[in-house]
Design a protein around this nucleic acid. Structure first.
Lengths: 334, 334
DNA sequence: TTGAAAGCGTTACCAC
DNA sequence: GTGGTAACGCTTTCAA
């Protein structure tokens, strides 16, 4: 392999200046059609590959939008991610993705790293961050969007829904169908703020309806999934029968609980109601189908794209706050 | 926001040259300790932010490793991705991720885009690519790793397993437990090569065991998941009883099939065996547990990291071909 | 419609 | 230990 082929090489081969090559490759209308065709042909022949790094350096525009997700392995976040990729791809922007593993310290490290790449915008999942993360972000003149939440004190723009409202829907539904002794199944306190907020939402809603205190069932450190739900119920055995509804932090956890509860010999929903969160595929396919909350992951992605377009086009002057809402989906487990 | 603070500004403030600032900020041992401390202090005070873009440009090292995945929303790929992120993160490398949606044309477009960012290595999931993708990649002097497959004609290094061997394990197990009338449930022909290879593996293994022709049940275009498995079986109804084993392209599909089969009133595994692929969480948690194949997603990621480290350290001269293998995991559905 | 010059922020290379 | 100079590949700007 010889040295890299640059615009200069292409220019030399065509017998024109690098400037013309630059224009020709970028659909600049001022360049002659024939010239453009010739340039493109030669560029192809020489195996020329455009250098985004040089472009990013020269124009001071990286073409990146940095995004943090708690986890890549989550159907909902994945859907948001896909909507972002597609929408921003059309605008010629590339996503720079980082995964926080549900930990704000990891998020901080990630944001620090992502910012050195000069992203044109930063999209964070969730509204809880370390103080240092907030500082890092606010020190830059950079559009920031927090998504999947409606934080009290946002860093910039917001596209999300209220986790506590969503849990209130669940609790109201359970109350309306005669349940009173609720247990919340989620991750250990501290690790995952999303989970903590959902838990708090359940507690608040239960108080509002004069229910007895909501029991807390700890399925381990975040992220918790099917097997953690299954394991914690299995460990409790028949003890679980003291409750009449399990409010789970997510559908996968609910699915795990469902299977363990059934293996124990309890009937769902007759003996015990089970609810999930997130409207995952498993909730719809499982037997019985799981009662859950639909959070419109794709819509969040689309709204973020639209917002970013507005920002880049200088059409937005004040921080946006978009509530995409959430909707109860009653299944067969309640 | 004023103009960007550069090393030159820091240098001016400290009263030294930009070169010294550069060295001081990069732990260069030749710099005096006091000088370094002073430089760092002033840089912080001025709110200096290092510019990776300029560095990448100047050194011709982007610090990126480009990775394509068929889908972000897949527990197995996610695990590989995590192993890659962690391992390469330690080496100061960042992942540049693209998702192909299981389509080679999309992969080509993606590779083209990723290459403009000057990645230091390219990691592709799967061994099937368009001719153009092959050309693009081979025209560059760039380490390439294909993972999750063992292609006949690799582009460079390979870390994966044999999809057909894995399916042979499944078929042998079914034969050993008395099944003969197999149906394969997967995506429509053409879309997803991984699925096609698995299908071919099943057909070949069935022939080797003198089984009747394997029926093909089309669950729709890739990617197919729980709901597609559920839907296709639901549509078939009792017709499905003509087979004695459903070999599914993945665990989620198997789970969907399982639930539909049970809703129809058939018993699993008494009336019908069901097998999956990938050792997803749902296979272990579902009731009954699904017989599947474990493909060691995390191990693949780790091996890729190790390989890349060797490559970057110039310790590897010939293309590696690492078979991580796969193992049958017998559940309760067979 | 095309070209020449300058420079984006950093670091390799060579002096001192 | 420190500094000066040049250069990475591209595009902005101005001129022809």
């Amino acid at each position: 392999m010889g040295a890299r082929v640059t615009m200069r090489d292409v220019a030399q081969a065509v017998g024109m200046s690098p400037m013309t090559v630059s224009r020709a490759l970028r659909d600049d209308r001022t360049v002659n059609d024939k010239t453009r065709a010739r340039v493109r042909q030669v560029a192809d022949d020489l195996g020329y590959v455009y250098d985004s790094t040089a472009q990013a350096f020269r124009t001071q525009k990286s073409g990146f939008v940095a995004v943090t997700l708690p986890s890549v392995n989550n159907a909902n976040f994945a859907e948001t991610f896909r909507a972002l990729t597609n929408g921003l791809g059309e605008a010629g922007l590339q996503l720079l993705l980082g995964s926080t593993n549900y930990r704000v310290e990891r998020e901080e490290e990630l944001v620090r790293q992502l910012l050195t790449r000069n992203p044109e915008a930063l999209v964070l999942t969730g509204g809880h961050h370390t103080e240092e993360t907030r500082k890092l972000v606010q020190a830059r003149d950079l559009p920031v969007i927090e998504m999947w939440d409606l934080p009290e004190d946002p860093l910039g723009h917001v596209v999300g829904f209220s986790n506590s409202d969503a849990m209130a829907h669940i609790v109201e539904h359970l109350v309306a169908t005669g349940r009173r002794k609720l247990a919340f199944v989620g991750a250990s306190e501290g690790a995952d703020m999303r989970g903590a907020v959902r838990r708090a939402g359940v507690v608040a809603a239960a108080q509002a309806h004069d229910l007895p205190e909501v029991a807390m069932i700890d399925a381990g450190p975040a992220p918790v999934s099917m097997r953690h739900g299954a394991a914690v119920i299995e460990a409790m055995g028949k003890d679980i029968a003291q409750y009449d509804a399990l409010v789970c932090v997510s559908d996968p956890v609910a699915f795990g609980c469902l299977n363990s509860v059934q293996r124990i010999g309890l009937r769902v929903p007759e003996d015990l109601a089970i609810t999930g969160f997130g409207h995952f595929e498993v909730a719809k396919v499982s037997n019985p189908r799981i009662t859950t909350v639909n959070v419109q992951a794709e819509d969040i992605g689309r709204q973020v794209v639209e917002l970013l377009q507005g920002i880049f086009d200088d059409e937005i002057d004040t921080p946006a706050r978009i509530d995409v809402g959430s909707a109860l989906v009653v299944g067969e487990t309640s």
